[in-house]
């Protein structure tokens, strides 16, 4: 009786594996990819830079310093944006890999199996 329970559980878990990959697993992985980008933005202090766009750097409050500071911040923000965009691109590719992985693996596995059986 107990063995039957465990066996059903095991078979169920094998059958649920592909479903999970494209349901719960996919959501989890998407969160992980998004989280990596958000964490990177946080580490760079991206929002802090945007918030302080018009605040002079290093406590220098004269006009020239303010101007220099504004452009300096602008350049930094642009550079950070590019970096974050790149990272977003990389994470998107990684996410697509997650989606493509099962069909690809099954195809390769089947290919090898059929090849070996026919040879």
């Amino acid at each position: 009786m107990a063995l039957k329970f465990v066996a059903v559980d095991l078979v169920g878990s094998v059958l649920y594996y592909p479903v999970w990959w494209y349901a719960g697993g996919m959501i989890r992985f998407a969160k992980f990819c998004g989280g990596t980008v958000v964490q990177a933005a946080h580490t760079l202090g991206f929002t802090v830079w945007i918030k302080n766009l018009f605040v002079p750097m290093f406590g220098q409050r004269d006009i020239a310093s303010r101007l220099i500071s504004f452009f300096m911040r602008l350049v930094t923000i642009i550079a950070y944006s590019v970096a974050l965009l790149l990272l977003t691109g990389v994470m998107s590719v990684v996410f697509l890999l997650w989606l493509a992985l099962p069909p690809f693996v099954i195809f390769e596995f089947g290919n090898q199996l059929l090849g070996l059986l026919s040879s």
């Binding site: 594996y17 990959w21 992985l101 099962p102 693996v105 390769e108 596995f109 290919n111 090898q112 199996l113 059929l114 090849g115 070996l116 026919s118 040879s119």
Partner: peptide, 18 residues
């Protein structure tokens, strides 16, 4: 793509890790 028992085991291993 050439049939090879070692690669068959490799792809099976990938499925197992997943």
């Amino acid at each position: 793509h050439d049939p090879n028992p070692r690669l068959l085991l490799f792809w099976f291993g990938v499925i197992c890790v997943g």
